[in-house]
């Protein structure tokens, strides 16, 4: 297992045109996983990752908390309900939203040096 390449989140916010929804936001990211199927995320995501999805259901928070995911980035301008944001704050999870599509946002993250599972390229 490769040591994950840590990428700073703060400098990425502008490129992603991301809006921060929760109070908390981590300093660094360990990698990225993309899926809209929650059971798939349960199977493959790793701690400290940023997860890109269009799903805004509260189950997203449960899954992210279970897998110790650091940030959920909702793409295509999607935003969860206020209750979901409050639950994320309680769990210490950060939620962001971007008008970019999932592909576009993933491109920005890759350019910034972020990689996938086990640092795979």
């Amino acid at each position: 297992m490769k040591t994950p390449i840590l990428v700073q989140l703060q400098p990425l916010m502008a490129a992603l045109r991301a809006e921060q929804l929760t109070n908390n936001r981590p300093e660094t990211l360990t990698g990225c996983y993309i899926s809209d199927l929650l059971s798939d995320v349960l199977a493959h995501a790793e701690p400290g990752m940023i997860w890109l999805t269009i799903q805004t259901h509260r189950n997203v928070v449960s899954v992210a908390a279970t897998k110790d995911i650091a940030v959920v980035l909702f793409t295509c301008g999607r935003k969860p309900y206020a209750e979901v944001i409050a639950e994320a704050d309680e769990e210490g999870l950060a939620l962001l939203t971007t008008p970019l599509t999932t592909f576009e946002a993933a491109g920005k993250l890759w350019e910034a040096g972020l990689r996938g599972k086990n640092g795979h390229e």
Binding site: N59, S62, T66
Partner: peptide
């Protein structure tokens, strides 16, 4: 609360129903 991950262990209690 759906799948509360509270109560110590990070076990997704009730996540199946929530899904």
């Amino acid at each position: 609360k759906n799948a509360s991950t509270k109560a110590g262990r990070k076990k997704p209690i009730g996540l199946g129903l929530a899904l």
